[in-house]
Amino acid sequence: MESEPEAKLWCDQVNPANKAALEAWLRETGIRLVQVNGQRKYGGPPPGWVGGPPAPGSEVFIGRLPQDVYEHQLIPLFGRVGRLYEFRLMMTFSGLNRGFAYARYSSRRGAQAAIAALHNHPLRPACPLLVCRSTEKCELCLDGLPSALPRRALLRALHPLAGALTGAALLPSPLRPPDNIALLRFSSHRAAAMAKKLLVEGHLWLGGEQVTVDWLKPELKQQLRLQGAGEPSSPPPSPAPWAGPEDGGPPACALAALHGLCQRQQLGAPVFLTKCLGSSLTGWYYFWYQVVIPGHAVPFSGLMWVAVDHGGQNEHEAAKEAVALRLLDVLGGPKAWMAPETSPPGSAGDLVWARAAAR
């Protein structure tokens, strides 16, 4: 495996002439590019922008790009036909582009002008650009949900995304009966893409099952319409991330329940180590954790995304709660958090945002 300095040196040697030209253009124009999540972005909004973002339909997709082309050639070209609100170039680790980009204009008229003027434009000899309307996908599909999962439990699990979530529907799955699927609609393509990234990286579990997260495909949407399934409806006001037992949710304090379980099984008090490795703009924190239980042969450790309830709870407390809930499952099954004489109000696995395998 290459070391970090060796990898950086290799990346620096890829396409050096155009990289140097890009850096010179940035110094000359004062334009600022931000690289995040595999893409390099200008604007969104650009300097001097007043008001909200442009209406849907103002973005174009740009394809058939030579991989050694950068923004110093593309932004001026696409800026000639209309005012750019945002330009996003998809990037590889080596610093080449991935062959496509998105240009968002201040209005739909700008997008229409770009398609009319620049589709099949010969950026280089025998290299015509593909420029077409961006689909701006805003809907996700969660497949593999247990048929008994209530909609309220789904919304509680999606609480960290509530600010961008504009609709949700829980329906029978035509792909994996008798499971359910959830259709989620977001306020923008960017919000949907960020939600998809977080849900996939977070390994979302609901009702004890790991959920498959993907874009809602047109053919599936059409199939659901033929079956009479409705569009995603508006969700109620953001629910609390944890519900009480009367709602079929997990206990109010999994950490206390874990301490109680360890005491009953004479394992000794668990000791938690948590380290926050990063965070997202939508309220998720990425944690490494290790839990030592004196009476257990090996410590438990792993990585997980954690959602934080900001009602007086900090991210480390949230991480300990999420890890404790996971260990209750491992040590005593889904009913371990309940007192022996208590009848089960619901599944303790319903609302785990991200569960890492204990090892």
Rank of each mutant, 00 (worst) to 15 (best):
K8D: 15
W25C: 05
G30Y: 00
G30D: 13
L33N: 11
V34T: 14
Q39A: 08
G43I: 02
P45E: 13
W49P: 05
P54M: 07
G57Q: 08
S58C: 00
S58G: 00
V60M: 04
F61T: 00
F61H: 05
Q73L: 06
L74Y: 00
G79E: 03
V81Y: 03
R83A: 04
Y85Q: 03
F87W: 04
M90A: 09
S94G: 06
G95F: 01
G95Y: 02
N97W: 03
F100C: 14
A101I: 03
A101G: 05
R104W: 05
R109F: 09
A111E: 01
A114R: 02
I115L: 09
L118F: 12
N120T: 15
S134D: 13
T135Y: 15
T135K: 15
E136C: 09
K137E: 12
G144V: 07
A148G: 13
L155H: 14
R156M: 13
G163R: 08
L170W: 11
L170T: 09
S173K: 05
D179C: 13
S187M: 13
H203Y: 11
L204R: 13
W205V: 14
E209V: 14
V213K: 13
K217E: 12
Q223M: 15
A229N: 04
P245M: 00
E246C: 01
G260P: 04
C262P: 00
C262Y: 04
Q265H: 05
Q266W: 04
V271D: 06
W284A: 07
Y286P: 02
Y289N: 02
F300I: 05
F300D: 03
S301P: 02
M304P: 02
V306G: 04
A307P: 08
A324W: 01
L327G: 08
L327S: 02
L328A: 05
L331P: 10
K335R: 07
P340F: 09
S343A: 15
G349A: 13
A354P: 01
